[in-house]
């Protein structure tokens, strides 16, 4: 029982309640083509198991993403590029700073949003291609990939059609479509993940090493998809292990 070590006054439960309507500070001015603007983002980790050791990872990072941008996050391993990426998806909660996102014609600060608002923003505005695929065993790949699109209100048949064409484009063998991805290889899982994120038309896409486990052929297919998104006016932010891919699709680089 570890509760004894934490005085209850330290974290009164009402302080972290989500009852209050999120208070959004006065809006800064954004350029018309801007989709995402991170300002002075600070993020560290306190490791309580290690005596409260504090690791500061992001110290005042700012980033603007415009329509048609593909921004590469570059730096050594452990430099904080993944942390920023996850913060942009509100997967990590930042210590200070703002992350402004244009969500359905209004500007929202991710750092101030309520959970249900974040769910809506992720559904319609920010997509994320993770390196990992977490799924319930037994659900076929086709349904896994179509799920986010169906959640936005698109009909099942339309969503499946879109995913099928993406799977074909990504050279995912058709015999796998009706199987659960739990048994897939790393590259196959990754392509399911990519199809899952690219099926929905969201203005912002975050790519965490989307081509890491892919061969040259499939890398090419993914690069094509990225180019299509850019042409549609999406803003992308990515971590690309592969320098060739990075230099080919990215027009800007944020170095850590």
């Amino acid at each position: 029982m570890i509760s004894g070590s934490i005085p209850s006054q330290q974290i009164p439960s009402q302080q972290i309640s989500d009852q209050q309507i999120s208070s959004q500070p006065a809006l800064p001015r954004f350029a018309a083509q801007t989709l995402l603007q991170a300002e002075q983002v600070h993020k560290g980790f306190t490791l309580h198991a290690q005596g409260g050791l504090h690791l500061s990872v992001l110290a005042g990072i700012s980033l603007t993403v415009n329509q048609g941008d593909c921004v590469a996050l570059q730096g050594a391993s452990g430099s904080g590029k993944s942390t920023l990426m996850r913060s942009l998806y509100a997967n990590y909660r930042v210590d200070s700073g703002n992350i402004w996102v244009k969500h359905q014609d209004s500007w929202r600060d991710l750092t101030q949003c309520q959970p249900h608002e974040l769910i809506a923003i992720r559904q319609h505005t920010i997509g994320y291609v993770s390196q990992f695929l977490r799924v319930i065993p037994r659900v076929p790949a086709l349904e896994v990939a179509a799920e986010p699109l169906i959640e936005t209100g698109v009909s099942k048949s339309e969503a499946f059609a879109k995913v099928r064409s993406l799977f074909t484009h990504l050279n995912l063998p058709e015999r796998l479509w009706s199987l659960s991805p739990t048994t897939f290889s790393g590259g196959e899982k990754q392509r399911v993940n990519i199809a899952r994120a690219f099926a929905v038309d969201r203005p912002i896409l975050l790519l965490d090493e989307p081509t890491a486990a892919l061969d040259a052929n499939n890398r090419e297919a993914v690069m094509q998809l990225i180019e299509e998104k850019k042409a549609q006016g999406c803003g992308l932010v990515g971590i690309f292990h592969d320098a060739d891919v990075r230099s080919s699709v990215c027009n800007r680089t944020l170095t850590f």
Binding site: I2, S3, S5, I6, I11, F45, T46, L47, H48, A49, R86, N91, Y92, R93
Partner: peptide, 11 residues
Amino acid sequence: LDDPQHPYTQQ
């Protein structure tokens, strides 16, 4: 789950 803040959650 990915960014647990409280000591208990981390544990």
